[in-house]
């Protein structure tokens, strides 16, 4: 079976769907099946129409939802392309120079490794406390793990 799976048609399929979550494809096709059985349709296997497009759309949706951290960290930083200073003439003699706030301030901000928490978690609320309960030995243990 392994041999046949490595066949050429499989290889051709792979690049097309390799980036699409197989579970996603499954749910896409199945929702269609459940909704409209293929046997009631005129033309056989009508559900196949536009399948690739649908999958592609779903893939893109998913991509947007999951943050791409690598891009965030290493991607080229989108910098404001405005001129560094906004210059405004006053009576043709003096110039008002203003700082480009965001970027300039960041470049000369405080060099500190502390990560300040501003998540707005209220640690007096029981539900919030419960959200970390299993991080402790007193919390729930996964199957196959033992407190001993």
């Amino acid at each position: 079976l392994k041999e046949t799976c490595k066949g050429s048609d499989m290889l051709q399929m792979k690049p097309m769907f390799s980036h699409i979550d197989s579970g996603l494809l499954y749910s896409l096709t199945h929702s269609y099946w459940g909704f409209n059985s293929p046997f009631t349709l005129t033309g056989a296997l009508k559900w196949k129409e536009g399948l690739q497009q649908k999958a592609a759309e779903a893939f893109l949706r998913q991509q947007e939802a999951a943050p791409n951290l690598r891009k965030l960290v290493y991607g080229s930083v989108v910098e404001v392309t405005e001129s560094e200073e906004e210059e405004e003439e006053l009576g043709g003699l003096f110039r008002v120079s203003r700082l480009q706030k965001s970027k300039k301030l960041q470049a000369n901000a405080l060099d500190c490794s502390r990560f300040h928490a501003d998540t707005g978690h209220d640690w007096d609320v029981q539900e919030v406390l419960d959200s970390i309960r299993d991080c402790f030995v007193t919390g729930k243990w996964e199957e196959g793990q033992d407190a001993a």
């Binding site: 951290l69 960290v73 290493y74 419960d130 970390i132 309960r133 299993d134 991080c135």
Partner: peptide, 29 residues
Amino acid sequence: IEFLRHIRDFFQIMFKIEVQMPLDDERKG
């Protein structure tokens, strides 16, 4: 994040960065 960028500048090393989301019934932050 800035440190990662500096590591790339000085050592030409880029990290693979994967987000791990907690499962629905997990209470681990």
